[in-house]
C-alpha cells in the first residue's frame, strides 16, 4: 500500500516502518480470512458479510468521489443494475420487445451473471459518465439522483422482466468449484464471507493499481485544478469516463454479491439510503485514501447492527444522522488522514 508518511522518518526506523507498511495490509487480510475459523459466530459473520458488500460499494464510490471529486448520489443505480443483471441472468427470462419478437435467456451459471453484472453496470457507467460530465457540481449530484430514480421506476414497472414490486425471488446462491467437492452452492456463512472478502480484496487492488497508474495521477491533477490539467493536455472527459466505468463495474459486482446473498431483489434496491450509506462510509474513513472506505465501512457497516436492541428504532436513525453530521463537520477529511497526521506528529 502507499505509505503517506513513509518519507518523513529516517534511518533504520524508516526501513522497519515501511516494511511494516508493506506487510500490514496482508496481515489484516489474513486476520480477516482466519476469523471464521477462530470465532465461528454465525451472527458476526452475517453482519460482516453484509457490511463487506457495502464496503465494496464504498470502495467503488471512492474512485469517483475521492479521486475525481465528483459526488455521485445515484451510485446505488450501478449497485442495483448489477443486482438485477446477475439475478436475471441466473434465473433466465423471456420478454417481448415489440414487433412480435421475443428475447429468451435460459438460466445461466451464477458466475456468468456476476460477469454480466460488471459489464452492464460498467456500460451504464460509461453512458452516465458521458452525459453527466457535461454538467458539474450540484447538477451532477442531482442528475445522478434522478438516474437512480428512473431506474427504480423502470424496475417497478417493467414487470415482464423484473417482476416489478413482486420482486425476483428464489435467486440461486453463489456456486463455486471447491477442491474435492466439485461445483457446490455456497450456503454456509463462512463460505459467503470468504467470497465477499475475496471480491473486496480484488476491488481494492484494482482501485489501487488504477490510482497509482498514469490515469490516477491525471485524475488527482484534475481534482486539484481542472483548468490547469486541461491546459497541459490531460483529456479530462476521457479520464473521468474511465473512472466512472470502473467505479460502476465494481459497484455492479457488489450488487451481484448482494443479489445472490440476500436472494431476493425488488425495486427498493435502488433506495437513496443505500447510496447515503456508501457515501458516509467513504467520507468517514477519508475520501481519496485507499483505506478510507474500508475503515469507514467497518464503522458504518457494523454500528447499526450493534445498536439493534440498545435504542428505540427511531433513535437509532437519529444517532446515525447525528454521527453523519459530526463526522463531516469535525473530521471533514476522514479518520484515515487524521490518524496519518497524528502519527506524523508523534
Amino acid at each position: 500500500m502507499t505509505a503517506p508518511d513513509g518519507r518523513s522518518a529516517e534511518g533504520r526506523g524508516e526501513l522497519n516502518r515501511s516494511r511494516l507498511h508493506h506487510y500490514a495490509p496482508w496481515v489484516f487480510v489474513l486476520v480477516l480470512a482466519l476469523l471464521p475459523l477462530a470465532f465461528p459466530d454465525p451472527y458476526m459473520l452475517a453482519v460482516l458479510t453484509s457490511a463487506g458488500i457495502f464496503i465494496i460499494g464504498a470502495i467503488s464510490l471512492n474512485l469517483l468521489l475521492g479521486y475525481t471529486g465528483q459526488l455521485s448520489l445515484g451510485h446505488v443505480a450501478f449497485f442495483g443494475l448489477g443486482a438485477y443483471t446477475s439475478a436475471l441472468a441466473s434465473l433466465g427470462f423471456d420478454i417481448g420487445i415489440g414487433f412480435g419478437l421475443r428475447i429468451t435467456l435460459q438460466p445461466q451459471p451464477v458466475w456468468l451473471g456476476f460477469i454480466a453484472a460488471i459489464i452492464v453496470a460498467g456500460g451504464f457507467g460509461w453512458l452516465l459518465g458521458r452525459l453527466a460530465f457535461r454538467v458539474r457540481g450540484a447538477y451532477f449530484v442531482i442528475i445522478t439522483i434522478c438516474f437512480a430514480q428512473v431506474l427504480r421506476m423502470v424496475a417497478l414497472n417493467w414487470i415482464e422482466l423484473t417482476q416489478g414490486p413482486m420482486a425476483l425471488i428464489s435467486i440461486p446462491p453463489f456456486s463455486m468449484w471447491l477442491p474435492g467437492q466439485g461445483v457446490v452452492p455456497l450456503y454456509s456463512k463462512a463460505q459467503n464471507y470468504w467470497l465477499v472478502l475475496a471480491v473486496a480484496v480484488l476491488a481494492f487492488i484494482v482501485v489501487r493499481q488504477l490510482v497509482e497508474s498514469r490515469i490516477g495521477r491525471a485524475l488527482v491533477a484534475l481534482r486539484a485544478n481542472e483548468s490547469l490539467a486541461r491546459s497541459v493536455g490531460i483529456r479530462v472527459t476521457h479520464y473521468l469516463v474511465i473512472a466512472a466505468v470502473i467505479s460502476a463495474g465494481i459497484a455492479g459486482a457488489a450488487g451481484s454479491l448482494f443479489a445472490h446473498y440476500i436472494r431476493i431483489i425488488d425495486p427498493d434496491v435502488f433506495l437513496f439510503i443505500y447510496t447515503v450509506t456508501m457515501v458516509i462510509m467513504v467520507i468517514t474513513g477519508g475520501k481519496g485514501t485507499l483505506w478510507g472506505p474500508v475503515v469507514g465501512g467497518l464503522i458504518f457497516g457494523l454500528v447499526p447492527d450493534l445498536l439493534r436492541g440498545h435504542a428505540r428504532p427511531e433513535a437509532q436513525w437519529v444517532l446515525y444522522g447525528v454521527a453523519m453530521i459530526l463526522f463531516v463537520m469535525f473530521l471533514p477529511r476522514g479518520i484515515v488522514p487524521a490518524l496519518a497526521s497524528l502519527r506524523r506528529r508523534a
Partner: peptide, 13 residues
C-alpha cells in the same frame, strides 16, 4: 428487505 434479513439473523443467531 435487506434489513428484514438482518433482523432475522440477529433474532435467530
Amino acid at each position: 428487505p435487506r434489513e428484514a434479513v438482518a433482523s432475522v439473523e440477529k433474532l435467530v443467531l
